[in-house]
């Protein structure tokens, strides 16, 4: 393991597997009556969020607290950055508190990598621009493995805005490393250049894309993509690419449906699908805690001691 978790693209497959296995132990902890362990007592984590986030931030904060880590939340709206402090200075200031982990969410890609170059703390990428969201991919992989027993050989479809989704990018790299057969389903405008190098197939028609699929990951469709000209309306998007029960019927009978949240019911996913027996969306949230605990634990042991 490296001291940082910056992306999945450069992570070793063995490390990914180690994180998933460790997460299983932490999931056991989370099912106990007393859910807190002293593993990282005396360590300090800073949740440095430059973008609004409820789920990821809550999940990290709770994971840190379950491990007895001291937690500082640093929510920085972009407006106060505009007032003048450079990211370099922000990081140097935070580091002076003597912290062990920086959990960073930023609207610009590559910011975790930049921080890792200037900081001795363990840097965990909690989502950078349109680049990656590694812990989301890890919790998704954990969930799939938990549900299906294995990942290798599964047919997994990712549906939606691949171009602007760091979740999709991390999942593609992660699932590819774990041996899945990946299909992307989206209109041409939402397929990023060159991604065919990393997936098995690309479909623009959801009905044929879903056929015989074991796992479907739906992605959040952001309203602002409409004004960007990536599609014409959310209604039309739903009509052509929305995940409905009827379409789900084309998949394997034991298909599971995933979503990183927050969902837009009636845009990328029909309510009936989100609430169906196929949906593992809430399980994903629980697993997120276990996976983030595992990441914190493993990175802490990888960090050079003073």
């Amino acid at each position: 393991m490296d001291k940082d978790l910056l992306d999945i693209k450069s992570a070793a497959t063995a490390d990914i597997e180690l994180i998933l296995n460790t997460a299983s132990s932490f999931k056991d902890v989370l099912s106990r009556d007393i859910k807190k362990v002293p593993t990282l007592r005396g360590k300090t984590a800073v949740n440095l969020f430059f973008e609004p986030s409820t789920r990821t931030k809550t999940s990290f904060e709770l994971a840190e607290k379950r491990l007895s880590t001291d937690v500082i939340n640093f929510v920085v709206p972009s407006s106060s950055v505009a007032k003048g402090e450079t990211l370099y200075d922000t990081i140097k200031t935070i580091e002076s508190y003597g912290i062990d982990f920086i959990i960073i969410r930023h609207q610009f890609s590559g910011v975790p990598h930049f921080i890792s170059r200037i900081s001795k703390a363990s840097v965990i990428n909690a989502g950078d621009g349109i680049n990656e969201h590694p812990t989301q991919a890890l919790l998704d992989a954990f969930t799939i493995k938990e549900q299906k027993g294995t990942i290798a050989g599964l047919k997994i479809a990712i549906v939606g805005d691949i171009s602007h989704s760091r979740v999709a990018k991390s999942n593609i790299y992660c699932l590819k490393k774990l041996g899945a057969d990946i299909r992307l389903i989206a209109p041409h405008t939402l397929i990023p250049t060159g991604i065919e190098n990393d997936v098995t197939e690309i479909y623009h028609d959801i009905e044929s894309g879903i056929a015989d699929i074991d796992v479907i990951m739906t992605l959040r469709i952001q309203q602002e993509r409409q004004s960007g000209g990536f599609f014409s309306s959310t209604d039309e998007y739903f009509k052509f690419w929305g995940l409905t029960l009827k379409r789900l019927g084309k998949a394997r009978p034991d298909v599971i449906v995933m979503h990183p949240g927050p969902m837009n019911r009636g845009v990328e996913i029909a309510s009936e699908v989100a609430d169906s027996r196929h949906s593992v969306i809430n399980t994903q949230v629980t697993n997120g805690l276990a996976v983030r605990m595992a990441v914190l634990y493993l990175l802490d042991s990888a960090r050079p001691r003073k």
Binding site: K9, G110, G129, K169, T193, G194
Partner: peptide, 13 residues
């Protein structure tokens, strides 16, 4: 530059 690398880095091309 726009291409596979910009996709990989998550940078606008």
């Amino acid at each position: 530059n726009e291409g596979y690398l910009s996709t990989t880095l998550g940078l606008r091309g």
